[in-house]
């Protein structure tokens, strides 16, 4: 899917080397990391219990990573199982914060991720349907951080059960009340049915924007501790609205651009389409010094009168 629609995307955005590189990496990640390598490893180790072998699929997006059956499968999976266990934890604790600091969360969301990959390619024709209203942004912040808290709680409970060998916590069954609802509500209904099935109604990135706990986790770094920003080019914005229209994450990019403010938003996945559709060269995704990255009292360039500080 991602490979086929990826080719279509590359054709459409062939004038941008950013999109070509990004989409090629996305296709390679899907083809090799998500599909071929796990399939081959699975074939080579058929007698072993299953555990996730997609190198880029990690907790908290992989919500079953710390469940007992999965931990056991990795523990019994020999040196490879051990590697996947250490790699999975390192990705969350080390690799993700470091890469997000230097590159923004785009390194994952629009360059590597499977959900993101599908949204970027098959979902591209629906990107303008994302809700741009301020009320949608408010809902987004509650929902996505709610899911992040939810997965932390569920995982903490699951780990308690694993290490204490109990199937209940405070007399409540862990499987029925924690694992199962998360898997069904978030894992299946939200990310799958609403996230992908509703492309033509809600736009392509509903899951990434409102639900993905990994996106929420990286978003916190991107907002508070990162070198990534979308720079607004002085006073060149003409308020045409192309950027906001085609933002799949529902960011009102124009609101920032027309007042000369850089875009530093936790939800931005760095797809780069706002920059591509801008007719005046106003937007540039870039990594630079943290100093002055957030200019929330901007003044548009162009006038020479005495300015107010």
């Amino acid at each position: 899917m991602v490979c086929l629609w990826g080719l279509k995307f590359i054709l459409k955005y062939r004038h941008s080397r950013y999109h070509i590189w990004r989409t090629v990496v996305l296709m390679i990640c899907q083809l090799f990391l998500a599909f071929l390598i796990p399939e081959i490893l699975e074939g080579l180790n058929q007698e072993q219990a299953y555990f996730a072998k997609d190198l880029k699929f990690f907790w908290p997006l992989n919500y079953y990573f710390f469940e007992d059956w999965h931990l056991n499968a990795m523990a019994e999976g020999g040196s490879m199982g051990m590697f996947y266990l250490v790699w999975g934890i390192a990705l969350f604790l080390l690799v993700t914060p470091i890469l997000t600091y230097f590159l923004g969360k785009r390194w994952y969301c629009s360059w590597v991720c499977g959900c993101g990959g599908l949204a970027e390619t098959a979902g591209d024709p629906f990107r303008h349907l994302s809700d741009k209203r301020l009320s949608a942004w408010k809902l987004e912040r509650w929902l996505i951080h709610g899911v992040l808290v939810y997965i932390f709680v569920v995982t903490a409970v699951v780990l308690y059960g694993y290490f204490s060998n109990q199937s209940q916590i405070f007399g409540i069954d862990i499987y029925t009340w924690f694992r199962k609802p998360y898997g069904f509500l978030i894992g299946a209904a939200f990310s799958g049915v609403i996230g992908v099935g509703f492309y033509p109604l809600l736009g392509s990135r509903v899951w990434c924007r409102f639900g993905c706990p990994l996106a929420a986790y990286m978003g916190i770094f991107q907002r508070f501790k990162s070198r990534f920003r979308i720079t607004t080019n002085g006073g060149q914005c003409i308020s045409c609205g192309n950027c906001s229209t085609y933002c799949e994450q529902g960011i009102d990019v124009r609101w920032y651009a027309q007042r000369g403010q850089n875009i530093v938003r936790s939800s931005c996945v760095g797809c780069g389409v706002c920059s591509s559709v801008c007719p005046r060269g106003v937007l540039k995704l870039e990594n630079g010094p943290e100093q002055d990255r957030i200019n929330d009292k901007p003044i548009l360039i162009g006038r020479d009168d005495v300015r107010l500080l």
Binding site: G234, R280, G281, L300, I301, G302, R303, D304, D305
Partner: peptide, 28 residues
């Protein structure tokens, strides 16, 4: 746009003359 900015300030009580800076423009 720049005239609008200046006039907004002036009417809000901060008298601001319109002094355009270095010329710039764009198109496609």
């Amino acid at each position: 746009r720049m005239m609008g900015e200046c006039l907004g300030e002036t009417i809000a009580g901060i008298s601001t003359p319109y002094i355009p800076g270095v010329w710039f423009n764009s198109a496609k």
